[in-house]
């Protein structure tokens, strides 16, 4: 049972900075799910990956107003293009406006 994950990795930190600067989010949750994917072929090829390959991001921001889901994802993907070039492999994204988040939360 070994873990090479630090509590907050450098990729996670830079993603948070970039998304905060771009979206001025009402809330931003980034979860590192990389450890669940270490055995994948793609991760084995990177030596198990950096420990920062798979993330789940939930972001609420009014910067998404009037934008389709695909446009919202593109905003985020573009902001993180450097991370994608450097080993980021998968993002699970949930991108909502403040209004949408208020409507769906219990």
């Amino acid at each position: 049972m070994s873990s090479n994950l630090t509590s907050t990795g450098t990729v996670e930190k830079s993603m948070r900075e970039k998304l905060t600067a771009l979206l001025h989010p009402i809330s931003l949750t980034i979860r590192n799910e990389s450890s669940a994917h270490r055995h994948h072929a793609a991760m084995r090829a990177q030596n198990g990956g950096s420990g920062e390959t798979h993330f789940s991001i939930r972001v609420v921001s009014d910067a998404f107003k009037g934008k389709s889901p695909i446009q919202r994802h593109r905003m985020i993907n573009t902001a993180l293009s450097e991370e994608f070039m450097n080993g980021l492999h998968a993002l699970t994204l949930e991108a909502k406006t403040g209004e949408e988040a208020a409507r769906t939360s219990p």
Binding site: P69, I70, H73, T92, L93, E94
Partner: peptide, 8 residues
């Protein structure tokens, strides 16, 4: 037409 990835 491109629809998106898994999440979408």
């Amino acid at each position: 037409e491109f629809v998106g990835g898994c999440d979408i």
